[in-house]
Design a protein around this nucleic acid. Structure first.
Lengths: 138, 138
DNA sequence: AAGCTAACAAACAACTATTATCATTTAAAA
DNA sequence: TTTTAAATGATAATAGTTGTTTGTTAGCTT
């Protein structure tokens, strides 16, 4: 199912309202693999709804995160990034330009929490972050 | 070599000054596996040097990071954490209490950047972050 | 279609973590 | 001891984000 459709449904199921601003955000997130920050999303919505406020963006992103439809990435130390793909996958970030790319490789057969932690933690997921320099920055 | 001694040497080699404030920070970092935030370090230094400023803490942490003697962790979305162990290792964070523990397991034989990225990236390191709930929080 | 109401958007203020500025102080070399 | 480059700390500034308020609206109900 497409993102816009899916998110619309999920919000409806929680008796939340589908507003033009939110639809716009859904559209921006659809098939988005660029890991945008709140500001990037804000700018793009602003192009079409010049009166939209930053608060609305933050609030909507918060709602989507709470519903598990969006993942917050803390891979960049300057700001949060958002990823509509909530399936387990990994990232590579250029430490120079901060660009983040997806790494779709299933490491789960090999990356397991050591025995000693098993009884003390309920693991929900894990994330591999590769750090390096991209070709453009080198 | 102990942390205090090592960091003193490294700073001297870069003609930087060893101040009591810095020595205090070095001591706090020594064998520290609690991944403190700047604020936690600030508070502990303040206990002994009540006049110390936050700026000094941040500056010193920045210096140590630049010299590669300290690693900045971006695993918590609220604030940065610092880890004096700069050898490759991994972390598990409780999404409830935000406690961070070390995971010493060598995943490097299995976690490799896919072929497609190899020619476009110079990877310096990778990091596995496990997210879950610890026993105390559950 | 009209009315209702919880949820919403936007304006704005506030907050938190961090960084910058700069005058004063100090480590440590000469 | 003198010198000087560097560090400190007071203060202000900034960036990113969150909280509050008030008028508005989506979407249900009738």
């Amino acid at each position: 199912m497409e993102t816009v459709e899916k998110l619309t449904k999920v919000l409806r199921n929680h008796s939340m309202k589908i507003t033009p601003q939110r639809l716009m955000i859904f559209q921006i997130l659809e098939n988005n693999t660029s890991h945008p920050s709140a500001e990037e999303i804000f700018k793009r919505v602003k192009d079409i709804y010049p009166t939209v406020s930053f608060t609305t963006i933050y609030k909507t992103l918060e709602v989507l995160c709470d519903l598990g439809e969006l993942r917050e990435l803390t891979i960049d130390d300057a700001r949060k990034h958002y990823d509509p793909n909530t399936n387990t996958h990994h990232h590579i970030i250029c430490t120079s330009c901060k660009k983040i790319l997806d790494v779709f490789e299933d490491f789960s057969p090999h990356v397991k929490l050591p025995e000693s932690f098993r009884e003390n933690y309920m693991i929900s997921n894990f994330q591999v972050s590769f750090y390096g320099i991209c070709k453009e920055c080198n």
